[in-house]
Amino acid sequence: MTRAAVFDVDGTLADTNHLHVVAWWEAFRQAGHHVPTHAVHRAVGLGAEDLVEHLLGPDRDRSGDAALSAAHKTLYGTYSDRLPALPDAGRLLRTLAARGWTVVLATSAGGSELAALRRAVDADEVITAIAGAEDTEEGKPAPDPVRHALDLAGAPADRSVFVGDTVWDMKAGTRAGVTCVGLLCGGIPRADLTGAGASAVYADPADLLARLDGSPLGGDGT
Score class of each variant (00 low, 15 high):
D151V: 05
P87C: 08
A14K: 05
D207H: 14
G90D: 07
T102S: 13
L68V: 00
Y202K: 03
T2F: 12
A155C: 07
D81A: 14
H20Y: 12
A67T: 02
L217F: 10
V146A: 11
A155G: 06
L114M: 05
A131R: 01
A157G: 09
A153H: 09
A191C: 03
P58M: 01
A67Q: 13
A131Q: 07
A97K: 09
V44Q: 03
A123Y: 07
G214D: 15
P141D: 10
G77H: 10
T37D: 06
P205D: 11
G186T: 05
V104Q: 13
D122T: 12
A109E: 00
D220R: 15
D8A: 10
A149K: 05
S112P: 01
A66E: 15
T95E: 15
R175W: 02
A115W: 07
L212T: 04
A172L: 04
L75P: 01
I188C: 06
C185P: 01
G139K: 07
G154Y: 10
G186D: 05
R60E: 03
C185S: 15
L93D: 02
D15A: 15
D81K: 08
T222Q: 09
D165F: 03
R94D: 08
T102W: 05
S215M: 15
A133N: 10
V167K: 00
R3N: 14
L68E: 00
R190I: 00
R60W: 04
D192E: 13
A149F: 06
S112E: 15
I188D: 12
L209P: 03
V9R: 07
G173H: 10
A89H: 08
G45S: 06
G90Q: 12
L193I: 08
M170N: 03
T222I: 12
K140S: 03
G187E: 03
A153D: 08
A4T: 07
G214M: 06
A116N: 08
G110Y: 02
A120S: 14
G57C: 01
T78G: 15
G214K: 07
R190M: 05
G32D: 08
L152R: 11
D204N: 13
P216N: 12
A66L: 12
D8H: 10
A203I: 04
A115Y: 03
D81G: 06
E49K: 13
V178Q: 12
V146R: 13
L208A: 09
G110N: 09
R62D: 03
R175S: 14
E125R: 06
E137Y: 05
T37Q: 15
L150W: 10
A67N: 01
A70W: 00
A89E: 06
T194G: 07
V6Q: 11
G154H: 11
V201N: 05
Y79F: 13
P58A: 14
V104E: 13
L55H: 01
